[in-house]
């Protein structure tokens, strides 16, 4: 099955100070797939995610080697606009982070920062995004009330809607269900299955079962290295590397 490669990572290393966080990662991401990244804490999976939208750089200068190409363009070349990159590569964080604003304004936030003034367009996008994460029916009566009043699961779906409003091509999710109950988790997973028809999704999770449930392919990271990447069914039934096997069978992590 030949598929279009949209993210091409080659020999990518990332250092914090002199400490290597990621070591020579090479992998491809296909259009409209869900790629799960699993691995124990400290394996560098979240850092990898943050290298894809260069969010690592807001705290410290990034030292990297190797390349990451998105749609054929090296995102670390100097003429890249960070704001454009991040609009194209949306991100959802581990804990839901609704901004202290109304539900509507949360979803519209990125659009407003992008300088979009057209009220109708903003409203359309907000409604559309809320519908895509199946939140619309729950909040349509109270769009102007504070987003902080929503439940944890609703907040996280709001955060996904906020990303969708930007019409990104990619959605990065960094352990999006780690703070949620099983029912909320299930709803988010359902949304993801829906969303992959239009978006390419990379999901970092420490829940191997979640990776098995939702993703097309799975990558296993350990101590900053990519150990194995393959179709999810193969990773979970016939992993090539012993460490992968140990991790998914719960020997460590």
């Amino acid at each position: 099955m030949e598929r279009e490669i949209v993210i091409r990572v080659r020999d990518f290393s990332y250092y914090l100070g002199s400490q290597p966080i990621l070591k020579k990662i090479t992998l491809d991401v296909f259009r409209h797939e869900i790629l799960s990244i699993i691995g124990p804490a400290g394996s560098g999976k979240s850092s990898f995610l943050r290298c894809l939208n260069r969010l690592n750089e807001i705290r410290a200068e990034a030292r990297i080697s190797g390349t990451i190409e998105i749609n054929g363009h090296n995102i670390y070349s100097p003429e890249v606009s960070l704001t454009e990159l991040r609009r194209k590569v949306g991100m959802v964080f581990a804990l839901p982070v609704p901004l202290p604003r109304s539900i509507f304004e949360n979803v519209a936030f990125g659009l407003r920062m992008a300088g979009i003034k057209d009220k109708k367009l903003i409203e359309e996008r907000v409604i559309d995004s809320l519908k895509k994460v199946a939140l619309w029916d729950e909040v349509k009566e109270r769009l102007n009330s504070s987003a902080l009043k929503l439940s944890g699961g609703q907040q996280q779906r709001l955060c996904i809607a906020r990303v969708l409003a930007m019409r990104p091509e990619f959605i990065l999710l960094d352990e999006p269900c780690s703070g949620l109950d099983p029912v909320s988790t299930m709803k988010i997973e359902e949304s993801l299955m829906d969303l992959k028809k239009e978006y390419t999704i990379i999901l970092v999770t420490n829940n191997t079962k979640q990776a098995a449930r939702v993703s097309d392919r799975t990558a296993f990271f350990l101590s900053g290295e990519l150990i194995e990447i393959d179709r999810t069914d193969r990773i979970f039934t016939a992993p090539q590397d012993k460490r992968t096997n140990d991790y998914i069978s719960g020997r460590f992590g």
Partner: peptide, 8 residues
């Protein structure tokens, strides 16, 4: 982080 990740 949210703001930056949305292209702020």
């Amino acid at each position: 982080e949210v703001s930056f990740s949305l292209g702020g």
